[in-house]
């Protein structure tokens, strides 16, 4: 096992990289590299080995107080245990969905859960409108109420194929198949090179053997 395990205790929520590698598209080395990143992110404000919402916001926007609906939703989905923090295992499993080699099905499901703001199992027209308004609020794009309403209605009606007033998982899947660019943001090409970005751990484990 080498001296790595005896060096210092791992943070709360630390999980065996071999287990995480088996459950995700990452290799063991990549999981170890992600641990380097995790340690950095989880100690940026509170050094407790857990990523708090403010630390997540700080990393994304360089501003701990920057509120953003979508970043909030991503944090909530990463926080699988719903205890207000992201543990290492949660971090790796969730980032796995963003891996270029992760399944399209997982990416489609993740995006659906993200947009299902009130977690009813459906994306409703009100939720879609709320998200469009949030996007407009954070961008410099200005659209009239009429135009916003038209965009929301048109998109919603196209996605709600059975016309029951809500978008279910199957309708969402079909809509994404029609417009694949909708889940472009569910892939981070960077994750393929994660060991190059955080090589310190990998280098240190190689010399141990």
């Amino acid at each position: 096992m080498g001296c790595y395990h005896s060096k210092k205790p791992k943070s709360q929520g630390y999980e065996d990289p071999t287990v995480l590698a088996a459950e995700t598209p990452f290799t063991v080395s990549e999981v170890e590299a992600l641990y380097e990143l995790f340690k950095k992110l989880s100690s940026s404000i509170i050094n407790d080995g857990l990523i708090h919402r403010e630390e997540f916001q700080l990393a994304l926007f360089r501003n701990r107080n920057m509120k953003n609906l979508f970043a909030d939703r991503i944090f909530d989905l990463f926080d699988v245990k719903r205890n207000g923090v992201i543990e290492f295992g949660e971090f790796v499993r969730s980032l796995g969905i963003f891996h270029p080699n992760a399944s399209i099905k997982d990416k489609i499901t993740f995006a659906f859960r993200l947009y299902d703001l009130r977690q009813t199992g459906f994306i409703e027209q009100e939720e879609l409108k709320e998200m469009v308004l949030a996007l407009l609020h954070e961008s410099e794009l200005t659209l009239s109420d009429d135009v916003i309403e038209t965009i929301v209605e048109k998109t919603f009606n196209e996605a709600d194929m059975n016309g029951d007033g809500k978008i279910d998982q199957e309708e969402w899947r079909e809509f994404v198949m029609k417009y694949p660019s909708l889940i472009k943001n569910m892939t981070l090409p960077y994750l393929k090179d994660i060991t190059m970005a955080f090589p310190s751990f990998v280098a240190s484990t190689e010399v141990e053997d």
């Binding site: 990143l37 990393a59 953003n68 998200m131 996007l135 417009y179 994660i194």
Partner: peptide, 25 residues
Amino acid sequence: KPVSMNAFELISRSPGFSLENLFER
């Protein structure tokens, strides 16, 4: 034309999805 925009396409471009920023050193 703005009315031809896909609402999901629009929201998918939010900076809130900039997870690549997590990797900036």
